[in-house]
Amino acid sequence: MRSRWVNKATALHLGVIAVLFALQFVLPDYHHVNLARVMVLASFAMGYNIAFGYTGLLSLGHAMFFAAGLYAAGLMALFAGVGAGGGLLLGVIAGLVVAAAVGCLALRTTGVSFMIVTLMFAQAAFLATFYFGEYTRGDEGFVIPSNLRSLFGLSLVEPTTRYFVALTLFSLCMAVSFAIARSSMGRVLAAIRENEERTRMLGYNVFLYKLVALVISGAISGAVGAAYGMLFGYVGATFASIQYSILPLLWVLMGGAATVLGPFVGTLLMFYLVDISSGFTSANMLIVGLALIGLILFFPKGILGTLRERAAPWLP
């Protein structure tokens, strides 16, 4: 029974990747680039989901990890001529290091205190992008020179390359999420989320597990930050602001926390909610706000979370 579920789930996720691969040939230009962007942002949300959804760490500091990757790649490109490959690597390292450092301090706290500590660290990081304005150009940010935006000799300025890189990143993040959800570590993380004290009593090093989850989450966020900069060419302080900590939380909650595909569903939905509503009305945020309220009333655990509860218990 269980193994059939695993197969069904594996097939679904491979199927999603196959569909995303095929879509690039049929989508019109606009939706082609949108989907690339959504896949990149959804990767960020999947990284967030590992901390929040699977481990129960409600962080309001993920903009800091995203920005660590974005600025690591961007500044090294601008001042040291590092290209996209090096930039992505630097992004992962930056996200990983920052998450480890913040985690060592912030994981002394739990629950809402953790939320506030991560928020404060992220706010300090946001202000730092202004304080070091001489290099970062603060709010205005800077453009990554387009000649450096290439990977293995392929220019990321090309829509097709961009789509492939986005899809690869997305597939990797999905594989990591899927593996964690299915692994024994994933079960320990879930146990920590449900009852931290009991898990500790059972002899698990709760702090270490949480730190590893946060570091994986941070490294993914950093990678996505670097990828976003390299794919779309812009680095700026907006991406370090509180808004970019709240957005992945929102995407994950919309799609369904602790589901592998939920972050993608949530990101896609929010993107097109904003895009479509701002196409026909200037009161776009009103529409988005009402849609959020309406959706959460019908899908209190997010779309896939509620679906899993009611119809598809095999969803990872």
């Binding site: 690039q24 040939f25 049929v26 019109p28 680039v33 392929l154 220019s155 829509p159 097709t160 390359t161």
Partner: peptide
């Protein structure tokens, strides 16, 4: 979209990134 579909037919949909990016300008 049309041109991309045409390209798909031509390529058999199996092209590697480099080939595709050469054939399909954004």
């Amino acid at each position: 979209g049309v041109s991309r579909r045409k390209a798909l037919a031509g390529l058999g949909g199996a092209a590697a990134g480099a080939t595709v990016s050469g054939v399909l300008p954004g």
